[in-house]
Design a protein around this nucleic acid. Structure first.
Length: 419
RNA sequence: GUGCCUGUAGCUCAGUUGGUUAGAGCGCCUGGUUGUGGUCCAGGAGGUCGCCGGUUCAAAUCCGGUCAGGCACCCCA
């Protein structure tokens, strides 16, 4: 009989308590900040009808064409594990007919799934935090959303490890005009473009601007500039976003090569990027997507938001913040069955009182004390026959080694003061 | 999906031009302490050298395949 494989599936990992604590630090920090900004938490399903993503992400995007975990369930439904959460949140908003409740602000945190070749900071099941702000067409929303991202990074002590890249994708007339100009320009330089970029010329010419190929870059140097094709409205919008960020003192660099693949994106596009994580340097990315709601069959609704990769943020946090320690418990160390029973009662009482308490399951005093040290207890309570007859317990300070006897009755109050 | 690098104990790694029973540190276990941890001392357990196949008298070491991780690309958080 063969042994089952116990390894996790490629691109997935098990998060043991230390790892989970690191993830939680990121997501709770973000959740707290988001709530301060008025974003309420939303949890949409981890799988959706495939259409939710196929329609919104378009059939040309890599995410849809080769990276989705798509399957048919037993009822024949075509379902997909969510590769991102903006579509899910928008779907939920449309389904609940909340258009009269606008503006709406949502925060989420949870697993996403993409069939990609794994690298550090890039897994097949990964986790994102994100925010979506629906129903505000003006630039104040963009500024607020970006500011929240900056403050999340600041709270994680990593804002100065990142650079905010900012660009505008303009409105539809701007983008159509620019796209036409780009196609025209690049078509005249086909012989100098990489194979990748020739493909992009068909699907998504804006992406050529972002190419890392050396020859492409030379061609891009002389390519038309978006600013020349922005409508007055689009230029004004972008100027207001920049003014808003300046007012808050949120630093950014203009990055004309920062683009988005999908048509429903418009105006603001931004990414917080670090150079500390290699090629997976984008730690938060987002933008405005006013066209999304209609694509999904909902009422035209403005939207702007961002998503951040928890794994990447956690890796950066490890570099910028001190180690996270599990809470230090009081360790109870009984000697003998009578003391064990008494201390299990005490453990119940302490835990009920909110005190982190550890009590082992076997072993002599030496083992009990070793365990107390291992779980990083600040105090040990030693109880044996000697103490029991006196109604006392021995309290040991695990740092100094000092011990004192205290009455068993009322020991909870003493320990509460030490915890 | 493409190219390249890596894979030895729980962890981090060593292992001479292929050559006997594959090592170290940390961690773990036991004892030194019948009621005292973390320090110290002594001892111990733990490895089909990722997996499968090939070359060879002989493979951790060379070759092929495969799986996994990593770097870059693609794409993206």
């Amino acid at each position: 009989m063969s042994v089952m494989s116990v390894r996790p599936v490629r691109g997935t990992v098990d998060l043991f308590p230390d790892d989970s604590r690191r993830h939680r630090r990121v997501s709770e920090t973000a959740r707290e900040l988001a709530e301060r900004y008025g974003f309420g938490e939303i949890n949409t399903p981890i799988f959706e009808f495939t259409d939710v993503f196929a329609r919104t992400l378009g059939d040309v995007s890599d995410v849809v064409t080769k990276e989705m975990y798509t399957f048919e369930d037993r009822g024949g439904e075509h379902l997909t594990l969510r590769p991102e959460n903006t579509a899910g949140v928008m779907r939920a908003f449309i389904a609940a007919k909340l258009q009269n409740a606008l503006p709406l602000k949502y925060f989420y945190s949870g697993p996403m799934f993409r069939y990609e070749r794994p690298q550090k900071g890039r897994q097949r099941q990964f986790h994102q935090i994100g925010v979506e702000l629906f129903g505000v067409p003006g630039p104040a929303a963009d500024v607020e959303v970006i500011a929240l991202g900056a403050q999340v990074l600041a709270a994680l002590n990593m804002l100065d490890q990142t650079v905010l890249h900012l660009n505008t994708l303009g409105d539809t007339p701007s983008r159509d005009a620019y796209r036409a100009a780009l196609i025209d320009y690049f078509s005249g330089h086909k012989d100098q473009l990489s194979e990748d970029s020739l493909g992009r010329l068909e699907k998504n010419p804006l992406r050529i601007l972002d190419s890392k190929d050396k020859n492409d870059r030379a061609v891009v140097e002389a390519a038309p500039v978006f600013d020349d094709y922005l409508t007055g409205e689009a230029a004004d919008f972008f100027a207001e976003v920049r003014q808003g960020l300046d007012d808050l003192g949120v630093a950014y660099i203009r990055d004309p090569r920062l683009v988005r693949g999908l048509d429903y994106y418009c105006h603001t596009a931004f990414e917080f990027v670090t150079d500390a994580l290699g090629a997976q340097g984008t730690v938060i990315g987002g933008g405005r997507y006013d066209g999304l709601a209609e694509i999904m069959g909902g009422p035209a609704t403005a939207g702007v938001g961002w998503a951040g990769g928890i794994e990447r943020l956690a890796m950066l946090a490890d570099q910028t913040m001190e180690e996270l320690e599990a809470p230090r418990p009081v360790a109870l160390a009984p000697i003998g069955d009578a003391a064990d029973r008494r201390l299990r009662q005490l453990a119940y009482e302490l835990r009920g009182a909110g005190i982190v308490t550890d009590i082992g399951y076997s072993g002599n005093l030496k083992r009990r004390m070793a365990r107390a040290a291992k779980v990083n207890a600040h105090t040990a309570v030693i109880l044996g026959d000697d103490e029991l007859v006196k109604g006392m317990a021995t309290l040991r300070d695990m740092e100094s080694g000092e011990q004192q006897e205290v009455p068993l009755d009322g020991i909870a109050a003493v320990l509460a003061a030490r915890s």
